[in-house]
Write a protein that binds this DNA or RNA. Sequence first.
DNA 1: AATTGTGAAGCATTTCACAGCT
DNA 2: AGCTGTGAAATGCTTCACAATT
Lengths: 226, 226
Amino acid sequence: MRSQGTPPRNQRIPDAAVRRLPAYLRVLEELQRERVAVVSSTELSARTGFSPEQIRKDLAYFGAFGTRGVGYETEALARRIRRILGLHGTIHAALVGAGNLGTALARYTLSRHEDVRIVAIFDVDPAKVGKGIQGVAISPMDQLIPVCRRLGVKIGIIAVPASEAQAVASALAEAGVEAILNFSPVKIHVSDPVYVQNIDLTMELQSLAYHTSVGGYPGPLDGESP
Amino acid sequence: MRSQGTPPRNQRIPDAAVRRLPAYLRVLEELQRERVAVVSSTELSARTGFSPEQIRKDLAYFGAFGTRGVGYETEALARRIRRILGLHGTIHAALVGAGNLGTALARYTLSRHEDVRIVAIFDVDPAKVGKGIQGVAISPMDQLIPVCRRLGVKIGIIAVPASEAQAVASALAEAGVEAILNFSPVKIHVSDPVYVQNIDLTMELQSLAYHTSVGGYPGPLDGESP
DNA sequence: AATTGTGAAGCATTTCACAGCT
DNA sequence: AGCTGTGAAATGCTTCACAATT
């Protein structure tokens, strides 16, 4: 397919590429603060740890943003990536579950991100309802659908116990949420247009053990004794 | 001792397969509580969301654990996976950084995992040192190497700001830690035998926006207006 | 001279399809 | 008859190598 000048229209964009964009964006913002106007894929590579070719390819999926022989204009590229990700303007998120993990995520997110902003928090525990985290009120679960709808929430963050996760996911979907970050250790099912990304901390932790001297495949396991 | 069956000797095991094992283990433990003695890959698929073929292939990397025509013996398979992961016995972990995220990770991990156990916590803030999280004391940073060595810490969890992450990683490596879970948003570099797994929450959150109606590749971006 | 953008090659992982046991 | 184990095919992602451009 020959399309020069024109950004590649109907090409499938690998999810892996999309997920690296925020890393590029972070570095570009750093560079802007350092008043660096132009950057090469090699320099971006040094700062992100991804290979220069991969960076070029990732960016090229969305069009030709660089200048051959020169590099990428820092500010323009940052703006472009923000636009591609949907981070121009503020995007509204809701956190469900204000336990240990949920509370930490809220504080972490609220202190760092202007672009993705938690605007509502929900919890089943009546003792928590009415309190707030950094100015965002904690509401009861039965408010989830109306509040998310009213506030135009696009992203849901699930930090509830496994048993509740599916119900929460369904409610979020019904409320019009379009993407979900699921920290519960169960596979949730939602109707088609909702995107789900899972982070299972237990899986991450336990699989780490494999890479230590105590884990690993020991060869033929002999003996069945406990 | 003799090699029974045919455990695949010198085959490379995909990291992706190792990272799914904890999910299988979790379901197997559930099934044990439900007194289910045997399980098929189809049933495991229904409970984990991974495909039956993939599950069979993953397990087969480590040897032939099932019985054709029947399925997998729940208890034996669970024991096998724990052994492969190195989760027979308790494996010692250290958390570095007791901020919002670190504290939540400590509470989450300490309340859930018996097998991977946080035995030491470190923080730069003198106000936090001396306090503890669920019975585990918070120690000053300069104690990191001696304490980790003394306690035989194999896994390190980094939850410090980006600026400190590399120094912490190097210290952990020097203390003999063999695997690191890095929550900071920088690529850390450690000498060879240390395995590093990154979880970048900002990347996860921001890339989610792409999959909403506000994000996504909009086609040829025209106009440079903000 | 330097650096991007990209087809093609190279890997890695997943899915398919079915032979092989129980 | 049912379900595992596994080569082979398909898919997806990364790296290579170099033409195109400033």
